[in-house]
Deep mutational scan, measured.
Amino acid sequence: GFTKEQQRLGIPKDPRQWTETHVRDWVMWAVNEFSLKGVDFQKFCMNGAALCALGKDCFLELAPDFVGDILWEHLEILQKE
């Protein structure tokens, strides 16, 4: 899971503390893990605080249908851990 990747890359547990690099690493991991298609990494050029502050509607505009939902749900789980 993502926990191993977080440990390997030194990504903080709390997504709100992520840098732009951490956000990119997470999106890249999720794309590979969940076989997601059509993700534009440029749209995720922000730090974790900005990403978490978007709200669901704005977040879902960053990625194609269903893909955004998967990313959003995973981000929500990470914020609760």
Rank of each mutant, 00 (worst) to 15 (best):
G1Y: 09
F2A: 06
F2C: 05
F2S: 05
F2G: 06
T3P: 08
K4Q: 12
E5F: 10
Q6R: 12
Q6E: 08
Q6K: 08
R8P: 09
I11M: 12
I11P: 04
P12G: 04
P12S: 06
K13R: 10
K13G: 10
D14N: 09
D14S: 05
D14Q: 05
D14C: 08
P15Y: 00
P15S: 00
R16F: 13
R16G: 09
Q17H: 09
W18V: 01
T19W: 00
T21G: 13
T21R: 15
H22M: 08
V23F: 01
V23K: 01
R24N: 11
R24D: 01
R24F: 06
D25W: 11
W26N: 01
W26V: 01
V27D: 01
M28Y: 08
M28C: 13
A30V: 13
V31I: 11
V31E: 07
V31G: 04
V31D: 04
N32F: 05
N32I: 07
E33W: 08
E33P: 02
E33G: 04
F34H: 10
F34W: 12
F34Q: 05
S35M: 08
S35T: 12
S35A: 11
K37Q: 14
K37V: 13
G38S: 09
G38I: 04
V39P: 03
V39A: 04
D40I: 05
D40R: 06
D40G: 03
D40P: 05
F41C: 12
Q42W: 03
Q42R: 13
Q42V: 05
K43G: 06
K43E: 06
C45W: 12
M46A: 03
N47L: 01
G48D: 01
G48Y: 03
A49V: 08
A50F: 05
A50C: 09
A50K: 15
A50G: 07
A53V: 05
L54S: 04
G55H: 11
G55K: 15
K56I: 02
K56R: 14
F59M: 07
F59T: 00
F59K: 01
L60V: 11
D65Q: 12
F66T: 15
V67P: 12
V67I: 08
V67G: 13
G68Q: 02
L71G: 01
L71P: 01
W72S: 02
H74L: 07
H74Q: 13
L75V: 02
L75M: 08
E76S: 13
I77R: 13
L78M: 09
L78G: 03
L78D: 04
